[in-house]
Design a protein around this nucleic acid. Structure first.
Lengths: 220, 220
DNA sequence: CGCTGGCTTTGATCCGGGTCAAAACGGCCC
DNA sequence: GGGCCGTTTTGACCCGGATCAAAGCCAGCG
């Protein structure tokens, strides 16, 4: 009944706009990471920029007492690990088994210095990250648990190019730490959305959006 | 007893690093805005980038039902209104009477195309905004009301170059909408910080940090 | 297959911060 | 100086989501 898990592999497409994919034809190293493996840690030297080729990645920070806030989820094609300073301010881990392209930061800087379109592509990536972070702020500051969960589901659908059925690559704990909630609240909210007929939960990591319109209404 | 309100006027200093201030010697228009006056609105064409010359500015978004989330406070010297797309995604208002420098976006683009240091300066501004937004996410997602208020006070102190005594240019409502709280909670939290001797509140918009160490401990 | 251990869900209760209401505090204008 | 109005503080109570606890539910493995 359920569609198989979509192979989330990144296929670069050359667009009209400045895109790093177009500029960075040279692949660079593409190591594999196992589920939950650390890709880089807070405080480490930021010598590389990364791109998800397959799988999914989470970036997060933790407070002294262990509270964790997930900053972003990264899917196939997404860049992450771009830093202003010398060191990573956040930690990155594979959420699923993942392959990740590593681009030497020096290479990127040289490219940016030589080619205006590369510099613009880097700026665009950073600015997109800022927009997503601003959306995240709005969600955490002013939205209810239900609105947050609905928003996350729609976001995952969009970013993994899923239609109605989506694979959720993250655990409930990951969802909670992204949404500023607890696992219990996330779980309860999902079941209540199911009870209202807005979604179906055929399995833990599989969600069907049954009334996308209604979900979007909560989000707007 | 109280020091007079510091004149928060921006004095550019030429640093060693790429700085837009150095590059943009040409002043451009510097209109004044009255307290609570709108500088630009969500959806408007983003033809200019702005820099606070004096006073303070808030940028925010509102949900359909009126819930407001303040994205950032901007003080003398800060740039704001940089957008990736054609339109502003957020609204900007003067929190106090303010003078604001307007820089035509085309000018900035030309400059970035011609001079690598200008392009780098713009990237840096965007990346700094991203870092602040990420800090904001961590605060909203995982910090208590008390930690949030303490963090805001320290942030204001740092960004207005205040030592122990600081002018708070924003209303309780502004603080609440930045911190993801209500006015009542902000007010209660401030008085409880005062009761514990961590701060003093000689007047509504004047705060004295009496135990900065303790405040920083809450924030870390 | 059946057992085991980690997720996830569900239940019961609690509490931090929200809501609603009223009093107190300033500014500001006359 | 006195009155007025918007902001801030304080009080009483409530509620959404957290916490604590106990079942379910698989997936993996022997």
């Amino acid at each position: 009944m359920l569609s198989p898990i979509r192979a989330q592999v990144f296929e670069p497409t050359i667009g009209l706009d400045a895109s790093l994919d177009a500029v960075l034809a040279t692949p660079g190293a593409c190591p594999r990471f196992a589920r939950d493996e650390e890709i880089f840690g807070e405080g480490e030297s930021a010598d590389y920029v990364y791109q998800v080729m397959s799988g999914a990645v989470r970036t997060y920070r933790i407070l002294r007492d262990g509270r964790r806030q997930i900053d972003e989820f990264h899917f196939a094609g997404d860049y992450f690990g771009l830093e202003l300073g010398e060191a990573h301010r956040i930690t990155a881990e594979a959420m699923t088994d993942a392959t990740v392209r590593m681009i030497r930061r020096g290479t990127l800087n040289d490219l940016a210095a030589k080619r205006g379109d590369a510099a613009r592509a880097i700026l665009r990536l950073t600015a997109e990250g800022l927009q997503r972070s601003q959306d995240h702020v709005l969600m955490l500051g002013r939205r209810s648990a239900c609105e947050r969960v609905a928003g996350l589901l729609l976001d995952i659908a969009e970013r993994t190019h899923a239609k109605a059925e989506l694979d959720v690559p993250m655990s409930r704990q990951d969802m909670a730490d992204y949404l500023g909630l607890t696992i219990e609240t996330v779980s309860r909210t999902l079941t209540s959305l199911q009870d209202e007929g807005l979604i179906a939960l055929p399995s833990v990591r599989h969600v069907v959006l049954q009334d996308r319109r209604a979900l979007e209404r909560m989000t707007a």
